[in-house]
C-alpha cells in the first residue's frame, strides 16, 4: 500500500518534469531539444549500470531475508548488534518506504534506537551500488567515503540514541 502511494509520487514527479519540458519546448525549442539529448546520453550510461545493480541486488536479497535481519538486530543482539546493524545497513537494500515498516517492526520488538540510526546511516554504503560510485568518482573516493560512513555511523548511532531516548 505504502509502495503504491510512493510510485504515484514518482509518476506525479515525472509528469511535472515533462510539463516543464513542454513549457520549455514552447518557448525555446532548441534549448529543450539539447536538454533532452543530454538526458538520452546520460540514460545510455545509466541503463547498463542498473543491470549490474540488479544482479547484485538479487543476491543480497536472497541471503539477507527479513527473518535473518530480525534475528541479528533483535532485542538480545547485545554488542554484536552494533556489528550486525552496520553489516545489515550495508547489505539490506530497498527504498525507505519499504525499509521503515520493517524497522518499525524491529523497534516494536525491542531494537535499540541507536542501532536503528546506525542501520539507516549505513544505507549509503551499498554493495550493489559500489560499481556505480567507482564509475563516477573513482576507487579512492569510494573507499575513503565508505570507511568514513561506517566509522561515523557508530558515533551517529550513539548521539541519536542518547538524544532521542531523553524524554523532555
Amino acid at each position: 500500500m505504502k509502495q503504491k502511494s510512493k510510485i504515484k509520487i514518482g509518476t506525479k514527479f515525472l509528469f511535472g518534469v515533462i510539463l516543464i519540458y513542454v513549457i520549455t519546448l514552447i518557448f525555446n525549442f532548441s534549448f529543450a531539444k539539447e536538454a533532452f539529448l543530454n538526458f538520452l546520453l546520460m540514460s545510455t550510461k545509466v541503463i547498463p549500470l542498473l543491470g549490474i545493480v540488479f544482479v547484485i541486488m538479487v543476491f543480497t536479497n536472497l541471503y539477507f531475508t527479513r527473518e535473518r535481519v530480525d534475528k541479528y538486530l533483535g532485542e538480545k543482539s547485545g554488542i554484536k548488534g552494533w556489528i550486525y546493524a552496520i553489516i545489515s545497513g550495508v547489505i539490506v537494500s530497498g527504498p525507505p518506504y519499504i525499509l521503515y515498516p520493517l524497522l518499525g517492526d524491529l523497534k516494536k520488538g525491542g531494537m535499540k534506537k541507536s542501532l536503528l540510526a546506525t542501520f539507516l546511516f549505513n544505507r549509503n554504503v551499498k554493495i550493489s551500488f559500489i560499481p556505480v560510485m567507482i564509475y563516477y568518482f573513482g576507487l579512492n573516493f569510494t573507499i575513503v567515503l565508505s570507511v568514513y560512513i561506517i566509522l561515523f555511523s557508530v558515533l551517529n548511532g550513539v548521539i541519536v540514541g542518547k538524544i532521542a531516548s531523553n524524554k523532555s
Binding site: G10, V17, N38, F39, M57, V58, N61, S93, P95
Partner: peptide
C-alpha cells in the same frame, strides 16, 4: 524467485524518480 521480484520491484519503483531527476538535471545543467 522472491528475490528477483523484490529487486525488480525496487528498481521499477525507482525508475520514474530516477529518470525524472535525470531529465531535470539535463535541463538545469543548461
Amino acid at each position: 524467485k522472491k528475490s528477483i521480484s523484490k529487486s525488480v520491484e525496487t528498481i521499477k519503483s525507482s525508475l520514474s524518480i530516477m529518470f525524472s531527476i535525470l531529465l531535470l538535471v539535463s535541463l538545469i545543467d543548461l
